[in-house]
Simulated assay, not measured.
Amino acid sequence: MAVEAERSDRHVMEVTNGLAAEFSGVIARPVVTRTVLEARDDLEGQIVPEALSEMLHQLARHRLGSLCSAGRATARCGF
């Protein structure tokens, strides 16, 4: 169980860092962090652990993109 938690935390950190860089200047890092953590909670127990990193990145990126298109972030989201 502890190994899964460590692996999950590593995935969260990697995805958060990557998406924070991608959305830098557009969406504040705390919003990116919260979005990634919420996505991880939603994926918990729904997918195989080996797919967590990819699915976490895709879900969080989709949600952050939705924030941009909904106008809740600046208009500089370039998708």
Rank of each mutant, 00 (worst) to 15 (best):
M55G: 00
A51L: 13
G78P: 09
D41N: 11
A60N: 07
E54Q: 12
R72S: 09
T35C: 12
E54A: 15
D41H: 10
M13K: 15
V3G: 00
Q46H: 08
L67S: 02
A70I: 01
E14V: 15
R34C: 03
L59C: 06
R72T: 06
V48C: 02
G25F: 08
T74Q: 12
L64R: 07
V36T: 01
M13Q: 13
L43P: 01
E14N: 12
V32S: 03
Q58T: 12
S69I: 14
L19E: 03
R29D: 05
I47E: 06
Q46V: 11
L64K: 03
G65T: 03
N17L: 10
P30C: 09
I47L: 11
S69Y: 11
E44I: 06
R63G: 01
L56S: 03
A21S: 13
S8T: 14
V12A: 14
G25S: 03
T16N: 04
L67P: 00
E54D: 13
R7D: 02
M1E: 03
R63C: 02
D9W: 07
A5C: 00
T16I: 08
S24E: 15
G45T: 05
E44M: 05
A51F: 11
G65F: 03
V26D: 05
R40Q: 13
L67W: 09
V3Y: 04
R76M: 11
L37I: 12
